Amino acid sequence: MNKEQLKKVRDGKGFIAALDQSGGSTPNALSAYGVMEDTYSSEDEMFTLVHEMRTRTITSPAFDSQYILGAILFEQTMESKIEGMYTADYLADKKGIAPFLKIDKGLADLKNGVQLMKPMPELDALLKKANTFNIFGTKMRSVIKELNEEGIKEIVKQQFEVAKQIIDAGLVPIIEPEVDINSDKKAEIENLLNKEILLHLDQLSSDDKVMLKLTIPTVANTYKKAMEHPNVIRVVALSGGYSREAANEKLKENDGLIASFSRALSQDLRANQDDEEFNKNLKDSVQSIYDASVNK
């Protein structure tokens, strides 16, 4: 574990940028960026275009360690280069930003009101590769859609089991059991989720360090005890489909909670913008998310 990056992520002011759209969500990300599906004819072409989008974002002067503590990457982005350097090295060495890697392989079918992560038989190999590419931490997403105690317990159990595997590989796991913002029992789900998270945190050894990435709660400061837990480096929030403006307002209500936004970060960026407009829009986005993360 990189101690300098650990200190920055744990103690720094700022937020985590989520740049980890993968195969299933990449067409939507490109479409939102103004690159339609009829402009590419293969997966390779698609990933070339999305890497160009990510490169433009990361190399922008607005993508600055004064505001951004870390960035979450997709595996193919990790294996690609920016200005002759692998992306994680560029982030760390040129930008002073800690690199994270999305490791899950998507969601299983809905069962007991939740979508667990699909099996990851290649995880050990991926974690070895992540260390080779100088990755600091990882992120893995599952989703809770309904108030179902059995499903919520199962989703938290799976997240912490995989987190332990990541810790043993010398990386910092971001545990992400997302709660669907459209659930009519969202607050009740979050109360149960919070209890389960705290139970599993208490079972970690003192040296085990994790991060949590959670949907901004309906009831402000629901996750306050988790933030204060000695095994938790940081708790970050996903935007979950909220607009940037709505997500920022909700974030401000939660003491100590910082952003890890994806769509909300990039919602005003377009491929046809010149550098001046692109950089201005990204700067405005970064500044607003930073302000919501640190001004409590």
Rank of each mutant, 00 (worst) to 15 (best):
E253P: 07
K283R: 15
E4Y: 11
L214D: 09
P173T: 02
K102H: 00
V286Y: 00
E149L: 13
L49N: 11
K81S: 02
G240T: 01
D104L: 01
V235G: 14
Y290E: 00
S243M: 08
V50Q: 13
A92W: 01
D202N: 15
V232K: 03
R54Y: 08
V35K: 03
S65K: 15
I175T: 07
N248I: 09
D93P: 00
R56G: 04
K225F: 14
E83L: 10
R270C: 11
Y86T: 07
A163N: 05
Q287F: 12
I135V: 05
N112D: 09
R141L: 13
I82G: 05
L269Q: 05
V50H: 11
V294S: 01
D180R: 01
Q66A: 15
V114K: 11
K118T: 12
K102E: 03
K128V: 13
V143P: 09
L69S: 04
S260F: 00
T138P: 05
A246I: 14
L6T: 09
A169E: 05
F15P: 03
R10M: 13
S142A: 11
S288I: 10
V9H: 01
Y67H: 14
K252W: 07
S80R: 03
D268L: 09
L193I: 10
K13R: 10
L19Y: 01
G70Y: 11
L198N: 07
A62F: 06
E245P: 03
I68C: 01
M120P: 05
A29E: 03
Q287I: 13
D255N: 14
M117D: 11
L91W: 04
E176Y: 08
M36K: 14
Q5M: 14
I103R: 07
I135K: 10
K81N: 02
S288H: 07
K209M: 11
K129D: 08
V235F: 12
K139W: 03
G113F: 12
L282M: 00
E146Y: 04
P230C: 00
I97T: 00
G23K: 13
L214Q: 10
Y86W: 06
A259L: 01
L193H: 10
G137P: 06
